[in-house]
């Protein structure tokens, strides 16, 4: 046997390697009935992350979008305008530390996760990155996911809120093309709103699409360039913090 298909060719299986597998007769098999969720391990880690963030008094956000929708530029604005800096950022990217350096320049404390060939962040990667972040005096932690509208959807990272970014240059029907991601969002940031006219963005159509896919999501029309809508977004995030009774810790806890 070749060790692959029982064809009778190739190397013989190592004798004595397995306990008792008859070589010629078809093997008697048995059925095991199970119920194991593939995301069980990730979800457990995510729950641990969430409670860890709460112990540090942090509101944690998972920021999701397609590549190029302006996540990092938005975060630069948020970091510069958040009333009680610094904002913490864990940023996932396939390669390079460019984003982390940009965010540090804007006043954020940023840690980069280079995911290599992984197209989404997972809870254990966030746990490891968070350990490198000095969270003293911090109120807000933003996890900037890998730019991708499919793969990150199913992976809870331990965030309190999911924010999906959709820029006006991407087209009005994006929510219909990627319903699962937009449906999972607590808020949608319609970014580059300052370019809406220049790209003939059909706002009503985009809002109608969002309303059908994610009727409960809060909508913020923002511009990372002009700062439009940032005040409203920050006000909402502060409200979310106080609703959860989160208070920043001056010192690292044990």
């Amino acid at each position: 046997m070749c060790g692959q298909c029982g064809c009778g060719g190739g190397a013989a299986p190592e004798v004595g390697a397995t306990a008792a597998t008859p070589i010629d007769a078809p093997e008697a098999t048995r059925q095991l009935t199970l119920q194991r969720r593939l995301l069980e391990r990730n979800d457990l880690q995510a729950a641990a992350n969430r409670s860890h963030f709460e112990q540090h008094g942090l509101l944690a956000l998972n920021l999701l979008s397609a590549p190029g929708s302006g996540k990092t530029a938005l975060l630069e604005q948020l970091a510069a305008r958040w009333p009680h800096p610094p904002v913490g950022v864990i940023v996932g990217d396939l390669a390079t530390d460019n984003d982390a350096r940009r965010l540090q320049a804007a006043g954020a404390r940023a840690v980069q996760i280079r995911t290599g060939d992984l197209c989404h962040l997972e809870a254990h990667l966030v746990e490891r990155a968070f350990a490198q972040l000095d969270s003293r005096g911090m109120e807000l932690l933003v996890i900037e996911n890998v730019g991708n509208l499919v793969c990150p959807t199913g992976f809870d990272l331990g965030e309190h809120l999911r924010l999906a970014v959709l820029s006006v240059t991407e087209g009005e029907d994006k929510p219909l093309k990627y319903p699962a991601l937009f449906r999972s969002a607590d808020a949608v940031l319609l970014n580059k709103i300052d370019l809406a006219e220049a790209v003939a963005f059909r706002r009503d159509e985009a809002l109608a699409n969002l309303a059908t896919i994610a009727p409960a999501a809060r909508l913020f029309e923002v511009s990372a360039r002009s700062g439009t809508g940032l005040v409203e977004l920050i006000g909402w995030l502060e409200q979310q913090r106080s609703q959860r009774g989160l208070q920043a810790r001056a010192h690292a806890h044990g």
């Binding site: 095991l32 199970l34 194991r36 995301l39 199913g154």
Partner: peptide
């Protein structure tokens, strides 16, 4: 939304 391993056939 399920993503579950529900059965194995083994010997």
């Amino acid at each position: 939304r399920e993503l579950e391993l529900v059965g194995l056939e083994v010997s």
